[in-house]
Nucleic acid binder design. Structure first.
Length: 419
RNA sequence: CGGGGUGUAGCUCAGCUUGGCUAGAGCGCUUGGUUCGGGACCAAGAGGCCCCGAGUUCAAAUCUCGGCACCCCGACCA
């Protein structure tokens, strides 16, 4: 992609509203723009990051044996009345009426919808187990959206639901998902740790949050440094957890972080209310054992930036960078430089189709290089004076210093970095 | 929902206290020129419902009242 045609409006100055590092950098880098409080537009580069993270999540879900589907965002009120959550979820759910006055909710989560589906489709223990997931826009009427993509009224979420015939099977599904989550966050490239958590409004008996340590986070956890066990600093009843680790007795440290994933063992909480039952081998009808597993995909974008930035801008991990490399010709009046840049761009684009940027803008060197640092593409190739000696300058965004390589081996060198 | 703050050019902001000239600066944008390896310089331009509404006044960006929006802290929340 040529930067001259890409909608990637970088900002030199920080928009007034941005406070958190990820919020500032995503705005400045031209990844996102606000439409309203907690409602964001993903510009082309922002969407590319979102899609890459989505791709990692999708691969790991599929690998874990989950099947992708797509459920509606518009939920009829009656469905939520069955579980009582039309009332208990309350104002956190966006509610709308159709032209006849019928009530609908914009889905904040999908237990009702998917349990209803499975109630219709599952007859026998032979139909189980099943794991189903979707990557979809969710709506939650947050009383206070904040920090850009961190907490939004509309956001992209991966939600997965497991359906098992037995409690043991359901616990196994839970464990499979927990492992998949660990793989996902590792691949995305952010630090994290699991925490025993409060099941909250989703409900159920067992639940883990995945926390990324960050000052911008909203969660406080107690973490034991010797055995790594961690819990929410507040228990459901509001009383603070004791400072000593129950596992090893050592002191625990209070720290803040952001929740990047949450998994719940649900048991039969929804299935029994919604009559999602199956006929077991022994001839009795039983409610399905369920679990649900969420990752805020759009929130992950800001989590990555919180974890991976420096004073110059974003330092995208290779796995979710909007582009894998950017070619930056900085002597725009030198035909050999232009020509070398276009050739290198074509060759790199052949190696990573659609994943390479060419900064063909007629801008000054400083502007281009600062933009490249801000946007945070992992590999930058500067073409300037060195071109007359057949040299290109490769700089890894995460690295310290650049190095010069012969133009003809530049593609090969960059492929090594990508590998 | 409680507390605090902010709404003036695309962005960052000054002007408001003490009402009055044609509403400003920097950055960005357009055109021309000089520059050209780390956010250049000179010149000429374009760009405004001073958040909205009602009031006070000869006169309101400025004062009063009411609303709306956005940000931060808290409550709540995955």
């Amino acid at each position: 992609m040529k930067l001259s045609v890409l909608l990637a409006p970088t900002l030199k100055e920080v928009p007034r509203e941005a406070e958190a590092a990820s919020h500032r950098l995503l705005l400045r880098g031209g990844f996102i723009r606000a439409l309203s409080a907690g409602v964001y537009q993903f510009l082309p580069m922002g969407l590319r990051v979102l899609r890459k993270i989505e791709g990692i999540v999708r691969e790991e879900m599929n690998r874990a044996g989950a099947q992708e589907l797509l459920l509606p965002a518009l939920h009829p009120r009656e469905l939520w009345e069955v579980t009582g959550r039309w009332t208990t979820y309350g104002d956190d759910m966006m509610k709308v009426k159709d032209r006849t006055g019928r009530d609908f909710g914009l889905g904040p989560t999908h237990e009702e919808v998917i349990t209803n589906l499975m109630a219709q489709e599952v007859q026998s223990h032979a139909d189980l187990p099943k794991m189903l997931y979707q990557i979809q826009v969710k709506f939650r009427d947050e009383p206070r959206p904040r920090h850009g993509l961190l907490r939004c009224k509309e956001f992209l979420m991966k939600d997965c639901y497991s359906f098992d015939a037995t409690r043991e099977g359901a616990e196994k599904s839970y464990a499979v998902m927990k492992r998949a989550y660990e793989t996902i966050f590792t691949r995305v490239g952010i630090p994290f740790f699991p925490v025993q958590a409060d099941p909250g409004l989703i409900g159920g008996s067992l639940s883990h949050e995945f926390i990324m340590p960050s000052e911008s986070g909203e969660d406080t956890v107690l973490r034991c440094e010797s055995c790594d066990a961690a819990v929410s600093a507040m228990r459901p009843d509001g009383s603070p957890e004791a400072a000593a680790c129950p596992a090893c007795g050592k002191d625990r440290k209070k720290m803040t972080g952001m929740e990047i994933g949450h998994i719940f063992f649900l048991g039969t909480k929804y299935s029994s209310k919604m009559h999602a039952e199956f006929l077991d081998a022994d001839g009795t009808r039983k409610p399905i054992e369920m679990g649900c597993y969420g990752i805020g995909v759009s929130r992950l974008v800001s989590a990555v930036v919180e974890a991976r930035h420096d004073e110059k801008g974003i330092v995208w991990p290779k796995s979710c960078a909007p582009y894998r490399a950017v070619v930056v010709p900085i002597l725009m009046d030198k035909p050999d430089v232009i020509e070398a840049a276009e050739r290198l761009y074509r060759d790199l684009d052949l190696a990573a189709p659609g994943d390479v940027l060419l900064d063909d803008r007629p801008a000054r060197a400083g502007v281009k290089i600062n933009d490249a640092d801000l946007v945070g593409v992992p590999v930058r190739v500067v073409l300037g004076r060195g071109v007359s000696k057949g040299l290109a300058e490769i700089q890894e965004r995460a690295g310290q210093k650049s190095r010069e390589v012969p133009l003809e081996s530049a593609v090969e060198e960059i492929r090594k970095i990508w590998a």
